[in-house]
Design a protein around this nucleic acid. Structure first.
Lengths: 200, 200, 200, 200
DNA sequence: GATGAATGAGCATTCATTCAT
DNA sequence: AATGAATGAATGCTCATTCAT
């Protein structure tokens, strides 16, 4: 009448957190369900009570990442104040968000490569990055309207800025010695003024 | 040396090329030795005459990529003329190099994530990117000395520029609709002058 | 005995009925305890309050089938009137009994194959069929004594008659388009007179 | 240049034979691929060089059985002489064929129950038995035309005769003490003349 | 050199059964 | 009594690697 009670959502999150730690450590390809279960402190079979397959766990990690990103983009887009200041804040927020959840960030290394022919992971990474670029492009357009960016900046420049952010993250993922925490400043500076500087 | 005998090196290259096509298509994790052999038009077992293991093929692809990159960096560093012009040329060259060998470039998606705990692939991606940053940093330092970059630009800005380049490549790898061929111009412009523009 | 409490026996029967429907649909091998529980409208664990194992449910189905058959055989043996008429009636009764409980009948498909090496199901199907043949043989012997069957009919002919009945059932189980309901007549006719007919 | 040579067909047959022995012994459901491989004296993985899945082995057994049966039916249909004699011969041939390959015959126990909802085995057992009945019906029709069977015998009587044959096999499969080898005679006698006998 | 048949370790997934509540 | 979350043994199938020819 009063069966064992569990918070399904919490348990699922617990497993996802464990999986993210494992994926971060060994990469998705080398991560066995058994590793995930062990990290979560449960039995192998129990993982399947919360996730239908190994791939589904990766997809859940992707969704966590994508929705965190969407929240940031949403914030930047709906904020008030000069567009360039909001772009600057977005850059800082993205880097801070990444640095705050480094294990989750490392899953990006597996996510970027997913969605190809045989892997059963149609994650629509492409669409996520498309939204990312669109948001930055919107900020740039606003900045141009405000006279704070040169006219004509658009999709291409948005791609460069998104690239710069993600490229910094990439380098930190490849080499943790890259000081991600100190990159927001120069990143924003270069994107806004270039290396020649405001008055070079 | 008999005309019947295929050059060992050529045969190895033939297999590597085939592998790169397969890896590009399905990702390294989903690529079977048999797929590679079939793509190369040889038998599965023959692959092992030229590569000791599946991972070694990936390592060979990495080396091809890394040495191409080194050649580019070498060129930029040893070139003459203003440093900033050479940085601009380097950006264009890297993108052109990527666009010229898109299959090889796609292997980056697998390479970036390699070298973790369980995968037997100590590729030293980190060191390669370190050299990349060092080269760009050297160019920046020279530019600063030439009065073409604001004083103080250094490692951090180099990280941003390398990030911008690789981040653009990343976006194109994720979504081939990203026009990699048209990105050199805005990439250089943003890195050099920012989105505010030369005279914003 | 409280009105709230369901009768143990009734609950067991409810589960068995559900199991029979599930077994009929998917076969025993493909039937999960969870399917049975769902069909019965109870929880998975509750099944084990009434049956010790998955196999035990199949055994219970066997027993239902076997005792129904025994009842029929008993009736034919203890009946009065000419033996051949009672054999004729038995044939009709068996087919009617099968047709009246088609789901239970389908379990035969799993039962026939059970009792082998690894399946933990020593059902003694063999003995049941032995009793079946013995009953028919007894009727035949009586008929011969009554001058209604040719002398010498015995175990072999009983096997043929049991075979004809069960073989018709088998064909209907394999292909439901076989009109089991219309087979009693020709079945009795062939067994009694052959295809040459009474006066061929 | 001269790789290890094997007769693929012979090897496949060797595995199938081994599988049939294992299926006969333990039933298909309880037969593991590893059992089959061990019985064949090869490694587990090697089985998959010749069969795509466990089910495919069962299907191959079915096909062997079905084509043997088809050969027999073909022979009976295309034979010369009185139809009833050919039916008589068919009955004997089927029993002899079964008795000659008892392991293969035991697979029938698994085949009869296959093809249901969840088992991924659309073997068309129904169609095979349909052809079986059609052949017997054709012989009966001919016999009727020849005045050797009573007019009106048809599909129903064919079902009974097929049933009698298969039902005898069934009983022998359930209980090997049933003397399949001695059943041809009484089987033919009953089917042709009934238990009342030619002149009862 | 080349081949491709054979191997067997490895792993995702399933599911009967248990038991804390 | 009833539940259903948890377990972990079991097993189908894959595929890198080996090696006899």
């Amino acid at each position: 009448m009063s069966p064992r009670r569990v918070d399904k959502t919490a348990r699922r999150q617990q497993i996802l957190d464990a999986a993210v730690r494992v994926f971060a450590r060994r990469g998705f390809a080398a991560s066995r369900i058994e590793d995930v279960a062990a990290e979560a402190g449960i039995a192998k079979g129990s993982v399947y009570m919360y996730f239908g397959s190994r791939e589904e766990i990766l997809r859940a990690a992707f969704e966590a990442l994508a929705s965190a990103m969407d929240r940031l983009l949403e914030g930047a887009l709906s904020g008030t104040g000069p567009a360039l200041a909001r772009l600057d804040a977005l850059i800082r927020d993205v880097l801070a968000s990444i640095a705050a959840a480094p294990d989750l960030a490392r899953v990006l290394l597996d996510l970027w490569g997913s969605g190809r022919d045989g892997d059963g992971l149609p994650l629509d990474m492409a669409e996520t990055y498309g939204r990312y670029r669109a948001a930055v492009a919107a900020l740039l357009a606003q900045a141009a309207a405000e006279g704070e960016a040169r006219p004509g900046v658009g999709e291409a420049e948005a791609t460069v800025i998104v690239g710069a952010i993600e490229g910094c993250v990439l380098q930190w993922l490849i080499d943790p010695r890259v000081p991600i925490g100190e990159l927001a400043e120069p990143l924003a500076a270069v994107c806004l003024h270039g290396v020649r500087g405001r008055d070079a």
